[in-house]
Design a binder for these strands. Structure first.
Lengths: 338, 338
DNA sequence: CTGAAAGCGCTTACAG
DNA sequence: CTGAAAGCGCTTACAG
């Protein structure tokens, strides 16, 4: 059983292949093909289950309809679900995704960009790591469409979509303050990544706005690539040496995971003895406690927005404007304790 | 900057494109092209950084050099690292991978096969779910190369590579028995998947071989899609109602994760009060205890073997023989407790 | 060894 | 609206 080609459809319809092609590509009107004929051709296409030969189209048009997705670490649940959402959104718009992780290594990032370029992707979706500025600039210079996600690189005029990190922490902090917690600690990563800085800013400014003094000893920074044991130890000691802490805001899901273990070690009850909020969820939380409140990123929305911007860039000569910087609203999720 | 084509190289070398193509495809000898000329052409290719246009090659040869990988659940660490290894192995042999998960749903599996077929993959790597027999048979009938991984479907004569599940559990059981544990429990999934049945068989037969009676009350089966809370509860109750248990073999890493939480709840010390072995590792284990012994699958070996079989099928008219059923030796990893 | 040519399955500019 | 044709970048059978 040979696959049907556009030529076969043309023969069946008694027209020349060009006509079928025009109908297929929505240029029927433009080419003044009668509605009647167009409808007949569409029916034949449908009946035959004809699908254009992707490779042939690519060769002819120079477009692969493949987008490259570079995330920081695909084994991290957050990036995994982001990748999944991106894939679904892209697929529904007729694009495919090739993806790979930088493992936070700019060298690897450079290599991946080269690989994707060789695979002739039409555009790039990137969660950038500091150090990738030049590579991303190169793409832009070569007129390759790029959209950043999850974070951006200050100084690069590239479209991006990410959660409003500042607003997310503010939302969580106000929830904790509303519950009556007074000495709220903030556990974050020791990194200059923009999204982490914005989260820290959210913590500090919400306190200030409520007339509460920011105590630097209540902000604990965990080295970026700590081993779990070390991170747990550090958080444990932090909790022990600040016995007046009555709530903790964990700035990432991995920190939350380590933090929950530390809290368990300390024998503290959540939420009676210590309130906990975490930015991003993790399956594992349910192993520890039902009583953790989550700041949830609208991952599907972020994915869809990023994909739509990229495709606009690709298809509509959309240009970068102030509207190319999209912040999505995070959500506060209170886990029921049943 | 336009990309260089085969034609450009031919012009530079003062030969006709065919000649370059022959050199490129290792047919220089066969076409009696002098070593000298071939070398000159190779040098030009190198110097120009020429890369064949993948799309054009595909269109001409009808081969995409893309393999479809269908795993059960890409968010599971085991499948994620399998996918990564597969990707690396394939890439080094000049193939790319498109992957997707069935989420253990045969309907989804069918849909994915259709999708991959439409994307014109050259071959399929599948971790089959019961219920996919027909779809896989269809592929075979249509002469599509298929290699199964991680498990196989009894009754389907398809090549596969997987770990020797029976030997893995035997290895672990003998380790526990050697340490002097007497009442070893086995916690597994309530499923008919072949790899799980083989693990159970490994448990039972090792006991028998050592003259120890198999006590069915020491085998606990957790429903396939339990929520973490429920699984933890079930294991906890199992431990409580069998106080003579002095060691537990967890048949999967997820079971181990739930099990460790249950053991912690029960206040039992590992390994003094209870020995623990788990089939497959999980990052999270380190949060609970360093003293867990792992039966490790040689994932890279499995990946490489599967890829090589598939490519042989594709390129060398390799046919299915007894040697197409490959079992890889698992490894016992004892975590140091420091 | 070389050359000329066909063709993979499409899209699109051109002439009518 | 229709037809004839070129061409995307390759590979390969054919004739010399």
């Amino acid at each position: 059983m040979k696959r049907v080609s556009l030529k076969d459809i043309a023969k069946q319809a008694g027209v020349v292949p060009s006509t079928v092609s025009f109908v297929l590509n929505g240029k029927a009107k433009q080419m003044r093909i009668s509605d009647e004929l167009a409808e007949k051709i569409r029916a034949l296409i449908e009946a035959a289950g004809y699908q254009p030969h992707h490779t042939a189209v690519s060769l002819r048009t120079g477009k692969t309809k493949i987008l490259g997705l570079i995330v920081e670490d695909i084994s991290n649940v957050f990036f995994a679900s982001l990748a999944k959402s991106i894939e679904d959104a892209a697929y529904s718009l007729g694009y495919r995704i090739v993806y790979c992780s930088t493992e936070n290594d700019p060298e690897k990032g450079k290599e991946l960009i080269r690989m994707l370029t060789h695979q002739q992707v039409d555009g790039y979706l990137i969660t950038p790591t500091p150090g990738m500025e030049n590579d991303i600039n190169n793409l832009i210079k070569n007129n390759k469409p790029v959209v950043l996600m999850d974070r951006f690189l200050p100084g690069l005029d590239v479209p991006f979509t990410l959660v409003d990190n500042y607003a997310g922490v503010k939302l969580g902090m106000e929830h904790l303050l509303g519950k009556g917690y007074k000495n709220i600690a903030f556990v974050t990563l020791d990194t200059q990544q923009i999204q982490m800085l914005q989260r820290e800013k959210g913590y500090k400014e919400t306190l200030k706005r409520h007339g509460i003094e920011v105590r630097n000893e209540l902000i604990e920074k965990i080295p970026f690539k700590s081993r779990p044991e070390d991170a747990i130890k550090q958080v444990s000691e932090f909790i022990k040496s600040n016995p007046d802490i009555d709530a903790i805001f964990f700035a990432t899901n991995y920190l939350g995971m380590y933090g929950l273990e530390s809290i368990k070690k300390a024998g503290l009850k959540i939420p009676e003895e210590i309130g906990v909020i975490c930015f991003d969820d993790h399956d594992i939380f349910r192993l520890f406690t039902p009583a953790i409140t989550i700041i949830r990123q609208p991952i599907e929305e972020i994915a869809r927005s990023a994909i739509e911007m990229l495709i606009s860039l690709l298809e509509n000569n959309y240009t970068v404007t102030a509207e190319s910087h999209v912040y999505k609203k995070p959500e506060l999720v209170i886990r029921s304790s049943t």
